[in-house]
Amino acid sequence: MKETLPSALFALLTRDLTIGRRIGGAASLGIVFFLCLVAITPFAIGPDLALLSRIGPAILWIAALLATLLGLDRLFQAEAEDGSLDLLLSSSAPLELIVLVKCLAHWLLTGLPLVVASPLFGLMLGLDTHALAGVFVSLLVGTPALTLIGAIGAALTVSLRRGGLLLAILILPLSIPVLIFGVAAASRAAGFAMPFLILCGLALMGLALAPFAAAAALRHSIE
């Protein structure tokens, strides 16, 4: 029986989600890391709630950026190690779509839980309702963009034994625009609509371009 393209991609998605749920508890670990980052910031800055609520959106965004980055080095590496990446590369499904599905699975496991948890952590930083909503919505749009940009770095470093640090070095400069407009939308420093729309634009651009760059990098890494 020949697999159709949508069913093959759906099978890949459920496979990734199942693996993510069973092994390592990526979702819960990501949230705990996010929580730790939020928890240590007041120790560095001081318990002044007025100051914390002012810089709260920035803290949440940096924590989300680092938490997203943390799991990214494993995005393709487990598959490269056990050989299933070769199968994915030689499958009839376009590699760009496979990359996109893997990014979606990764975001559902690590990005989405952060977004859902962010209002709770925002309360601990003394954010008001407006700011909570701003952080929630901007992270909802921004974390997929971070995952997509990160996928390029993950594909570039997939064949390296210790690619994690290099991945961060490569990806952090490229994620500066997302950070700038994400924090600006969340903190409403220049109104909400304008930075938020640019953030959406960055996310869409990542959606359109990153799978191609990541797929090209995977092909050159594995050959």
């Binding site: 570039l156 760059a213 090209a216 990098a217 890494s221 050959e223």
Partner: peptide
């Protein structure tokens, strides 16, 4: 050779 192609992709993304 591989490094050149990977760097090339990253350079263009940059």
């Amino acid at each position: 050779g591989k490094a050149a192609r990977l760097v090339a992709i990253f350079t263009l993304v940059g």
